[in-house]
Design a binder for these strands. Structure first.
Length: 600
RNA sequence: GGGGGCGUAGCUCAGUUGGUUAGAGUGUCGGCCUGUCACGCCGAAGGUCGCGGGUUCGAGCCCCGUCGCUCCCGCCA
């Protein structure tokens, strides 16, 4: 007989009755009935009830066992009597009659119980991650993550993509996020950087003629964490295609994501492919964000013209962009509902307020109630209702400000209203592409033009005219769109991608517009720029976030619930104790001297 | 860097206007129990109330500071 097990803890059924078997696992639960002792033995595969009586030879040893001890139990499989069958357990028809007990490992009193499904504080869970991972929820999520990644690999390979690895120690690149730096021992004063993404490498792979690349790629960015943003590191399904248009990329990615989410939908609805394609400008108008949750039926309308009318006397909105956010059925909400939203807009969004009108229908005629309704004549109200699509019993909220701020406030109000009015269908995955992102944006602080997203994207503009642009063409430049797109699901940005700029002249010009001298661009992106001078195929791709995909499929709101060994919000690994100080010898070898920040 | 929330037994939490010896559940330990599967019953141990200072006759509770965790803004594809 095998030293540890003949079967796993989720395996035994009626047909095994009469067999002598050996199981190993953790003591999930111990129930001592005096004349009878039950031990539920747990492993990765399941749970098996084991039982022993006081007159049995193995009783004394079994009686010592406590929660989370690791033990090997040997004995005969017996059928349970009909009234003691446990229908909730796959192994519930049988039990193991313990004849032999071998204790493999004992456990101290647990800082985090494995049994049960109570919530525990994050720091305890992170410090004792190995215990938390034994618990059903995390164990299931992490296993799911593995299945999701396996499915992604299958689907990508089926679509003709080839997986390649790219370096982890590479060069710092100036754009985007802060880099993690690794000091060089051999080259004093010089540093490697961990890749923020394999962006340049995958473009070089295209130049090298490999045509369709993918990788489950680790990415490193030294920025602050959020619930949907792990500190430091995360994984992307990085992919790139040669001789591909934007539509080709969409056509390659849609079946992978649609198929993947359908495979793991578990009763949830996955909207049909092709996914809706929404231009960035339209998204900002209708949803007030560039990552709209399309499960939320609310659509924002621009009603600036109504408040600009001479017969509309509401001064606070004059000369401003006014966005209207319909709140279906909110007419039935108490006054406090409206006050709360107004308070939220003032305190958290820094807005002047969130005005509203409650619409009532009276014999086919629409009337308005609320603080600002009286400033608007009857046909003005009708126009508001027409533009926003509200009807009797609905409320209409207003965000008034400069355009960007009005859009942002309206967008956040839309999210809040959707949630609070229960308009979100939780059993749905709503995908969309956001397309035509602006190439550049105005940096108000530094009074200069910045790349608004990925600097390697191809501008949607005639090549010769682009090369001829000058700083005098500011409005044209800020109006430029790029072949740059995002995939969004349920209001979460899953990925961004682009058709790349593979033309060295256009690239140098693109950087020049953003304030990088030609020599500087050559110095910083020389590797890639140089490659483009030796025959570069037109190419493009994208990189959906693996962690966020798993989070959506697992129905979790936090990345730590789908990450095996996550760091806390302060980017510390509480289990391993990272980051940590290193020895003086290590620092000397790396030619590094530590200068601590001065205490304020 | 800034804002919100939280911090009381190993764990989850309660603790009234500031008032005797800070409680419950769970876990641990001991006793009883032959069919439980969140077993049941009895008992015991277990607390620098995050830390420091202040106000007060008296502080878990009020004030100031500080530390930790978390959510958000800034930052970030």
């Amino acid at each position: 007989m095998h030293a540890y097990r003949t079967h796993n803890c989720g395996e035994l059924r009626k047909e095994h009755v009469g067999n002598t078997v050996r199981l190993s696992g953790w003591v999930n639960r111990r129930r001592d009935h005096g004349g009878l002792l039950f031990i539920d033995l747990r492993d990765h595969y399941g749970l098996t009830q084991c039982v022993v009586e006081p007159d049995a030879a193995a009783f004394a040893e079994a009686d010592r066992c406590r929660s989370e001890w690791v033990v090997t139990l040997t004995g005969k499989v017996v059928a349970r009597t009909p009234e003691t069958v446990n229908p909730d357990l796959p192994t519930g028809d049988i039990e193991l009659r313990i004849a032999e007990v071998a204790i493999q490992s004992v456990a101290q009193e647990l800082p985090l119980p494995v049994f049960g499904d109570l919530e525990y504080p994050e720091d305890t869970r992170l410090k004792y991650r190995f215990l938390d991972l034994r618990r059903e929820r995390l164990h299931r999520n992490i296993t799911l993550r593995s299945h999701v990644i396996a499915s992604i690999r299958r689907r990508m390979i089926a679509q003709g993509f080839t997986e390649f690895q790219t370096p982890i120690l590479t060069a710092s690149s100036p754009e985007g996020a802060r880099d993690f730096l690794v000091p060089s021992r051999i080259h004093p004063g010089e540093f490697y950087a961990l890749p923020q993404a394999p962006q340049q490498f995958k473009q070089l792979i295209m130049v090298a003629g490999f045509d369709r690349y993918f990788q489950i790629a680790p990415c490193f960015r030294d920025e602050d964490a959020r619930a949907d943003r792990s500190p430091g590191e995360f994984y992307q399904l990085d992919l790139e295609m040669s001789f591909a248009t934007q539509d080709d990329v969409f056509a390659a990615v849609e079946p992978v994501l649609h198929g993947l989410f359908t495979e793991f939908a578990n009763g949830r609805d996955v909207g049909p492919a092709p996914f809706p394609r929404i231009p960035y400008d339209e998204a900002m108008l209708k949803y007030g964000v560039d990552k709209p949750d399309l499960r939320n039926p609310i659509v924002i309308a621009d009603v600036s013209a109504v408040f600009a009318r001479e017969d509309v006397a509401f001064k606070a909105f004059k000369g401003k962009v006014v966005r209207a956010i319909p709140a279906p059925g909110a007419g039935a909400q108490p006054r406090s509902f409206f006050d709360k939203l107004n308070d939220w807009a003032r305190s958290e969004m820094g807005a002047a307020g969130l005005g509203y009108i409650v619409f009532e229908e009276d014999g086919g005629k629409l009337t308005g109630k609320g603080p600002i309704a009286k400033f608007i004549p009857e046909d003005g109200l009708a126009e508001l209702a027409r533009l926003s699509g509200v009807k009797g019993g609905d409320a209409l909220f207003f965000a008034a400000d400069r355009e960007a701020r009005a859009a942002a406030l309206a967008g956040q109000a839309r999210i809040r209203l959707g949630r609070e009015l229960g308009l979100i269908d939780e059993k749905k995955f709503a995908f969309c592409w956001i397309v035509d992102f602006p190439m550049y944006e105005w940096n108000e602080d530094e009074k200069k033009i910045d790349f608004s997203h990925n600097p390697f994207s191809m501008p949607q503009f005639d090549r010769e005219k682009f090369l001829a642009l000058s700083t005098a063409d500011r409005d044209t430049i800020l109006g430029l769109k790029a072949y740059q797109y995002d995939i969004v699901c349920n209001g979460i940005e899953l990925s961004s991608g682009a058709i790349r700029n593979h033309d060295p002249d256009v690239m140098l010009k693109a950087f020049e517009i953003a304030g990088y001298a030609r020599e500087e661009t050559e110095a910083r992106f020389g590797g890639m720029l140089n490659a483009f001078r030796y025959g570069a195929p037109p190419h493009g791709g994208t990189a959906p976030g693996i962690d966020r995909i798993v989070m959506l499929i697992a129905g979790e709101e936090n990345l730590r619930e789908v990450t095996m060994f996550p760091m806390n919000q302060q980017a510390q690994d509480l289990m391993m104790g990272a980051p940590s100080a290193v020895s003086a010898k290590q620092l000397r070898e790396l030619h590094i001297r530590v200068v601590m920040p001065e205490k304020a």
